[in-house]
Design a protein around this nucleic acid. Sequence first.
DNA 1: CGTTGCATGTAAGGTGTTACATGATTAC
DNA 2: GTAATCATGTAACACCTTACATGCAACG
Lengths: 198, 198
Amino acid sequence: MVSPPSRSRAEPATLPATAWAVLGMLSFEVEPTGYEIRKWSEHILRFFYWSPAMSQIYAELKRLEKAGYATSRPDVAADGRPRRVYAITSEGREALAAWASGAPVGPPVLKHGPALRVWLGHLAGPETLRRVVTEQRERAERLAEEAERSRRDAVAGTGWAHAELVARWAVRYHRAERDLADRMLADLDELAARRPPG
Amino acid sequence: MVSPPSRSRAEPATLPATAWAVLGMLSFEVEPTGYEIRKWSEHILRFFYWSPAMSQIYAELKRLEKAGYATSRPDVAADGRPRRVYAITSEGREALAAWASGAPVGPPVLKHGPALRVWLGHLAGPETLRRVVTEQRERAERLAEEAERSRRDAVAGTGWAHAELVARWAVRYHRAERDLADRMLADLDELAARRPPG
DNA sequence: CGTTGCATGTAAGGTGTTACATGATTAC
DNA sequence: GTAATCATGTAACACCTTACATGCAACG
């Protein structure tokens, strides 16, 4: 006779990483609205983990409330407009801590559109490829700069040491992406030289 | 009176990138089974664009056939077992070429689980973080080696110049990920030294 | 005779997006 | 006035995964 599976404190509900990310935002000492969570994720999360859609945020908040990991209360903004603010519960904090230190970490998910295009390069003329990779180079450069700005904001806050660490990682990541694009451009040029047009 | 939207040669059906990736596999001079497509995507696609599930492959093949971009015919394997092989049609080749040279390329999608964990580092003891990042370091190293093997296979084939280019990119990408993990480990150590335990 | 590989699918469900709907306040 | 920002949701749909179902061939 095996004891039936029960969800005790040691076994938090299995939620998608997005839910934990949202709950994680509540674990910083603030009481944000769904809208503010979105803005925040645009500000930092997108550099290493994508930014969920507004509707997704609200859906996750609803799920977290249902699980007892978050609570919400009506509030009024500075200008008097009504809004709803969210907070993490102690159960939520416990579950999040258990997840953060216990759950297996899957491999990073990468879907690199520009690389896919180059892979199908035999169908798309060298100019197109150069354009695609150059665009990617510029995007990566832009992201690196934006991540650097985000990092500087993190330095300002106290208790944001890990946020700053990740921001630093993100800056390096997007610089690496830029460099990779540069090397790809060089390789493309070399290929074009080996196989002259016509 | 506006003329009704019609799908002519200039406007290929909008398909998800996955469909184009599968169709792209058919654009190399082979006539694979769904099963072989899957193996191939495990062999190379996963290093820069994830590998779809078997059922997803079959679903995409069905969709491509319906769109007239692929055909299939029953075949027999070397051992006599029945199977179904797929080929690209001329419409498919045209649509694929139009997509490859015309469709806008979105930003790479990245969901970096290890980075997410570090971001929530205030909830998870330094040993956990070290473990997570070390695992990531090793995974990246392994992927770089596997990508390098895949690259060598691409060199062997003729007409695979772009596949080799992307494989080279993938090797560099995963080496960069490994280096990023190393630098993250150094940063974590520095943080732990600044804030000693207790 | 059991496991692995080849081979093809269906069904159910979860994750996530876009489009839609609504309405207040602030800045131009 | 009208555009942008703040703010909250619903509905429909697309994408993709896991689990399930089936069966033959080759290898040990």
